[in-house]
Design a protein around this nucleic acid. Sequence first.
RNA 1: GGCCCCGUCGUCUAGCGGUCAGGAUCCCAGGUUUUCAUCCUGGUUACAGGAGUUCGAUUCUCCUCGGGGUCACCA
Length: 463
Amino acid sequence: MVVTRFAPSPTGYLHIGGLRTALFSYLWARKNGGKFLLRIEDTDKARNSQEAAEAIVKAFHWLGLEHDGEIVYQSQRDDIYAVYIKRLLDEGKAYKCYMSKEELDALREEQIANKERAKYDGRYRDFSGTPPEGVEPVIRIKAPLSGEIVVRDGVKGDVVFRAEDILDDFVIARSDGSPTYNFVVAIDDHLMGVTEVIRGDDHLSNTPKQIVVYESLGFTVPKFYHVPMIHNSEGKKLSKRDGATDVMAYKEMGYTPQALLNFLVRLGWSHGDQEIFSMDEMRELFNPKNINRSASIYNTEKLDWLNSHYIKNISNSTLAEMLEPYGLLLTSHDKKEILLDALKERAKTLKEMASLVNEIIIAPVSYDEKAVEKAFKGDTADILNNFKEKVAACGELHLPSDYHHLMQNTVDEMGIGFGKIGQPLRVALLGKMSGPGLDSVMAIIGKDETILRIENILKKHHA
RNA sequence: GGCCCCGUCGUCUAGCGGUCAGGAUCCCAGGUUUUCAUCCUGGUUACAGGAGUUCGAUUCUCCUCGGGGUCACCA
């Protein structure tokens, strides 16, 4: 059974980079019929980890991702960690270190002055004397001081670290008794049954320490996949300063979950030349062995393209539902189909779509001056009047093609080009020179409103 | 600075010893459209550099350069 996990620290929202590793972990678990677990890494007793967890679950829900089982909070597991600390102590694999903070700092400074690597010197490793007064000890684990630690990584390959380069007897419990990150990660991943750890490659350097913990406790080391970072345009690790890193901000901006997920799954991962992936296809085709080895730069051009692609290809009824959070209640609008058909190919985001709808439904309060100047020539009023009368003379008008015929009639009758009626009519109906097909616009707003808008502009602009 | 990772079009990527180095996006041009958008067609742009290995390297090895990550009683 494949068990993966997502283990964020509580920052209060779901980060775009975190979402990508979460997505990879989720997909890999689902593909294998396994489990995808959620754990909040709040060992520093963060006050709002509950809120943070809720924010993550909320974002997951928006995106259609679901974790399995209960959320694990590290802050509530001190008793569990204490058991393993005691066990290592009893087995002589860890020990109390009475070195004070000041002593440690002094040692570090001296080492740096001598151009040596700053590391704990192991002075309490085999200490059996009387401990100094007034110092609450930390617990250090006995790490191998020589030899190699190799991380067998599914993305990077075998990464070899020399113990003497990177290890020392690192702290697993602080002087107040609380356990440290590299210790609890290993414990939790083991206890939760995690078999494959997919996480950012900023954790690669920590992994040897975690392997030391696994091995000291006799746990089997999981399979690791360290996925490259997402960089900003400066080539640095993506952070809050880089604008929209909160996943829910994408909802507000009008991106669909499908587009965001599709965008993220293709950032650092590929399946040949395929660009478009449905959720089912992602679950079917994702494999961490195809994760790219190099970092990628965060650039949303492709996200925009994907978003408009999905808006274009979605059914009108679901589109209408998705528009509701943006203040558009269309589900019962009688011209819903014409409206959405006319607009879905024009909007990059749902938010934009909503405002495009309003531009049609709400009559223009003012007219773009340049557009008026360009569209209104000598006989424009005659043309518009001709058309208006044809509209008024008709009984029932419903379809865009009905209006199109009337426009055609005016054009034929007056012996003019289509542009002669199209331009001024467009300004009359929408107040500007661009927009969807006029026949659709008129079908949406209806006969009376069409006449009204033509009369309005004629009142203001006698050509 | 030590250690580790990475280096193909501007961007996302395919490639896994022999390819006109492919796709997508962006951008540009043309077509379609009463307009704009969509859509269609076409186009510009890449193997960081240098040594090897080999009949032959984008692909394998080494070096240089460049970028990133990490080195806590943070996670």
